[in-house]
Simulated assay, not measured.
Amino acid sequence: MASDPANPRQRVVRVGSRRAKLTAAPGTFAEPEVTDDETVAPVRQGEGPNDARLRQDVPPHY
Rank of each mutant, 00 (worst) to 15 (best):
M1L: 09
M1R: 07
M1Y: 09
A2Q: 10
S3H: 08
S3P: 14
D4H: 15
P5N: 10
P5K: 13
A6Q: 15
A6E: 15
A6M: 11
N7I: 03
N7G: 00
N7Q: 13
P8A: 11
P8S: 14
R9E: 15
Q10P: 05
Q10W: 06
Q10I: 10
Q10H: 06
Q10D: 04
R11E: 15
R11C: 12
R11G: 10
V13T: 12
V13Q: 13
V13R: 08
R14F: 05
R14V: 03
V15L: 13
V15C: 11
V15K: 11
V15N: 03
G16D: 10
G16E: 07
G16F: 02
S17A: 14
R18N: 12
R18S: 13
R18D: 08
R18F: 07
R19F: 11
R19I: 04
A20Y: 13
A20P: 01
A20S: 10
A20V: 14
K21T: 05
K21S: 05
K21L: 04
K21Q: 09
L22N: 07
L22Y: 14
T23D: 07
T23Y: 15
T23E: 13
A24N: 02
A24H: 09
A25I: 04
G27C: 02
G27K: 05
T28K: 04
T28R: 09
F29Y: 12
F29I: 05
E31N: 09
E31I: 08
P32R: 07
P32D: 09
P32Q: 08
P32M: 03
V34N: 00
T35M: 06
T35N: 09
T35C: 06
T35G: 02
T35R: 14
T35K: 13
D36S: 09
D36C: 05
D36V: 03
D36W: 05
D36N: 06
D37V: 14
D37L: 12
E38W: 01
E38I: 01
E38R: 05
E38F: 01
T39M: 03
A41H: 07
P42D: 08
V43T: 14
V43A: 12
V43S: 12
Q45K: 14
G46T: 04
G46K: 08
E47N: 10
P49N: 02
N50R: 03
N50I: 04
N50K: 01
N50Q: 05
D51A: 00
A52W: 00
A52H: 04
A52D: 07
L54M: 02
L54V: 00
L54K: 00
R55I: 00
R55W: 00
Q56M: 07
Q56V: 06
D57A: 03
D57S: 01
D57Y: 01
V58F: 07
V58P: 01
V58R: 13
P59C: 05
P60K: 00
P60L: 03
P60C: 02
P60I: 02
P60M: 05
H61V: 07
H61A: 10
Y62N: 06
Y62R: 15
Y62K: 08
